[in-house]
Nucleic acid binder design. Structure first.
Lengths: 140, 140
DNA sequence: TGACTTTTTAGAATCGTTCTAAAAAGTGTT
DNA sequence: AACACTTTTTAGAACGATTCTAAAAAGTCA
């Protein structure tokens, strides 16, 4: 029952995004969107899927993460050149980045204000302002 | 004369950083630190060196950029998972990032304030706060 | 079900970056 | 200047995250 309901929700999300609800997209979507917000890498999601008994190739995990991002279901975070992080929280927010562990932690963006920024270069449109607070020395 | 003076400056910088003033480090240092602040990638600096008649391998360019960064002579900027950018401006500042062209532009950091950030996670030390304003649609 | 389009997949390819281990260069001492 | 010693440079291999390829599988719709 609850599985059915959840699945329906994911299917709707996919349909709204113009993505066919394939088995892989539904199952990965369920992992990603069922439960609290999270940050994943492609490898981590692939391992998690495998551990949950979901059969999906790494290429499909990459494709799916990119498609979800293009559709606005995920947001890509750049904090480290080594790997791409995807965030299920697509609302206005920023991040703590633990440089030692690679862990990310959300900072709610509703109260954060970046003031005294100069105007955007002539002709340019601001797409997004990312604030990354790099911290070290704490676990998680 | 002026060349000699410049070289001396680079040599001092290298010595202060605990780096032996090898031919490659002096020449790359001259390209990087002579003149206004700039943003480079390893490939771009390697090409520029070649164009200036400087014989240096790509591996050495990478090594040198990393050593300069560790020594505080450069700062690494993460805006894009595809390549690493190095900034000769190591003072407090932020960036406009032109997503179309990959170009970076400095934003002086003396007036920029990020307010209402939550406290750093318990036990963590803030290393740095990076603000990246992603813009599109303008050339430059 | 059939006809058609999209998606998935394994494995190859790509590309920025790092590693390796051997040659070259820098340093301090005689 | 030559020596002994350490560090650096180098070409090319290796690496790792990500994308590409083109063939098989699955989804869609009449």
């Amino acid at each position: 029952m609850s599985i059915q309901r959840t699945y329906t929700t994911v299917i709707e999300r996919l349909r709204d995004a113009g993505l066919r609800p394939t088995r892989q997209r539904k199952e990965l979507g369920k992992l990603l969107f069922d439960g609290p917000d999270r940050h994943v890498t492609a490898e981590a999601l692939h391992s998690e899927a495998a551990a949950s008994g979901i059969r999906v190739s790494l290429a499909t995990v990459y494709n799916t993460l990119n498609q979800f991002t293009d559709a606005g279901l995920l947001r890509e975070i750049v904090v480290d050149g080594d790997r791409a992080y995807f965030d299920t929280n697509v609302s206005n927010h920023h991040h703590f980045y633990h440089v030692d562990s690679g862990a990310l932690q959300d900072i709610d963006g509703t109260n954060v204000v970046v003031s005294n920024l100069p105007e955007a270069p002539h002709g340019a449109t601001v797409e997004r302002i990312d604030v990354v607070v790099r911290v070290s020395g704490a676990r998680q």
